[in-house]
Design a protein around this nucleic acid. Structure first.
Lengths: 339, 339
DNA sequence: AGCTGCAGCTATACCGGTTTAGCTACGGTC
DNA sequence: GACCGTAGCTAAACCGGTATAGCTGCAGCT
């Protein structure tokens, strides 16, 4: 049935040397002469030898895989392009080093923490990526306690001694408010994501600061869970109030599109009656009418940087703190001067 | 730094038995008395022991991971909710058995094949899922040659000796045509997905058969690459023709939404001027105005079934051939009688 | 009593790598 | 010629499990 794979023993026999010599030769380490090394490499090539990852992981006591746990209900995940882009980016970088990515989708943070414990004790992964960091996140302390190398994705500054890769959300928020402010908007609302998430809180702070810098006093935030339902109901509430905002900023593309649907339903023109801005660009934003002004970032590249950061830590390097490019605002048809 | 994990040796010492006895006890195999077994289990519990997956994989010569390779450009992936739903579903089932999922995103089929070769020779995965099967797909022969257990996702009937999990696309297509036909449509076009993909071809055949059963002669198919751009341009072409169709069926949600945008742009009313149907439902379809009539399937559950099928094969069971529920059509505002 | 059979356990080999102690042969030095 | 150092290799231990041959003691049978 299954094909018998050659092992270093086979190479050793064929090349007339010992297993140890083969190991040294294949890993490019000193201890064998150049002539022997090339002979061994030739045999390995000939037999199409590949290291058995389990054996290597066992003896070297290090896993050549890294893990990513997403703690969100499966249904809401499928909707956001962010994670898929991120994963693709991680992958692209990891695969250049033959490091595999283990993906796990769980329901909540308790389950996520359990996964880290398991992965760690089973020695299944050599490191992990932490996403969706919360204020006072339990995971940071956990991975440090476990001695599990990790990279925090999306958090600025230091989280314990962990490496982190992040974008300057505050600057990005400023560029949105500037765009809306210079168009003449003075009543701006924000349909925010999950409260408690670090980046939500950061954006909220930046939103209020940037607004007051523009003399915008009516700057309201509504908390949601990122789903289209809550994005829609938040929009409905905002637009049906006594003094509706003239512009709304959404924390993701899905809610922004849902908001656009509600505006159409209520007969509020876009951008005449209300301007809409989406945080995170996607085909979704471009497909609807009018297309949404959106905050675009290169999530694929961002993932690549995160992967590089983790590989650095795994190689024994010091935890780095990488700042990604500031996301840029792409103005489209959904924003204009208020009527 | 890293915490030293207990091994079965530690358990053996502590329980005063041999390593072998511990192994037997922990795996619930005969060979130890019940009293000894419970004593060993108690010690294992106390030490919070977990098997080292590398060691287990090495000695048992089977990997406790399975793999999924997606051979599509990263950019087009993020858009479709299908894969994320599928992955979540696979996960949910796999994790009940502590089987990990390795995910790899590659650019083309050559790269994909290389990944299987590598995974197999490195003994990194015990099995794989094959998606997006093509007519005369090279992967089927490859995994059989490699002796790599696999489940074909989305293909009906037998592919070599591989297990498969699939939905009856033909019946689903019939339900769409019936819906449109009974509304009075007699000129129906279809914006199809990638030609060469098995399910695209199957749907095309079913489309024509169902159409002629309803006496619909004007049943045109346009091939695309699944992207919103091609969905949009196909729609533009169809609607600007001399005798535009009164209904269009799209092979995915993204193209359908793009098509709705084009209709709006051209001033063609939906559903008055043209009815639109999306294959695969998503929040996307519900969010736009009017909401799209869509063919809904429970992709999450579908993934679960695929995982079960692969686990069965890994357990030495015969390759099964599972038919999933027929996707159901959810009528919404985008379909109505032609004007 | 002697034999068989078996439950229950131990000891050990094994999976495929890495790592290390140690051996050998060779060259250089005084 | 004795001594030392080292390049180049081998043998063997080791990682943490699983699989298996074999040992022991007790019960049952004749």
């Amino acid at each position: 049935m299954s094909v018998k794979r050659p092992t270093i023993r086979d190479i050793a026999l064929r090349a007339g040397v010992s297993k140890g010599a083969v190991s040294l030769a294949l890993n490019g380490r000193p201890g064998v002469s150049e002539t022997t090394r090339s002979r061994i490499l030739a045999v390995a090539e000939e037999l199409a030898w590949r290291p058995n990852s389990a054996a290597r992981a066992l003896s070297a006591a290090r896993a050549d895989s890294v893990g990513l746990v997403l703690a969100r209900p499966a249904r809401t995940l499928g909707v956001e392009s962010f994670f898929f882009q991120l994963i693709s980016g991680l992958q692209a970088e990891l695969s250049t080093r033959s490091v595999a990515l283990m993906l796990q989708v769980v329901e909540d943070q308790d389950a996520e923490i359990e996964v880290y414990r398991r992965w760690c004790s089973e020695q299944r992964v050599g490191g992990v990526f932490l996403v969706d960091l919360r204020v006072d996140d339990r995971r940071v302390a956990l991975v440090e306690e476990l001695g599990l190398p990790a990279v925090v994705i999306g958090g600025p500054g230091h989280h314990g001694g962990l490496a982190s890769v992040w974008a300057d959300d505050a600057k990005a928020m400023v560029s949105i408010i500037e765009h809306l402010g210079s168009l003449g908007h003075r009543r701006i609302a924000r349909v925010a994501g999950l409260p408690g998430l670090l980046h939500t809180e950061r954006r909220t702070t930046a939103f209020h600061e940037a607004a007051s810098a523009w003399g915008i006093t009516a700057a309201e935030c509504v908390a949601t869970d990122y789903t289209d339902e809550q994005g829609a109901s938040a929009t409905r509430e905002l637009l049906s109030g006594p003094t509706p905002p003239t512009a709304i900023v959404y924390d993701n593309d899905v809610m922004a599109v849902a908001g656009a649907g509600v505006a159409a339903e209520l007969g509020v023109a876009v951008p005449g009656g209300v301007s809409l801005v989406a945080w995170d660009d996607s085909p979704l934003c471009r497909l609807i009418h009018p297309p949404l002004t959106a905050l675009a970032r290169d999530t694929f590249a961002f993932g690549g940087r995160a992967a590089t950061a983790l590989l650095t830590v795994l190689d024994g390097g010091a935890p780095v703190d990488v700042e990604d490019q500031v996301p840029v605002l792409v103005p489209r048809g959904s924003t204009g001067p208020p009527r």
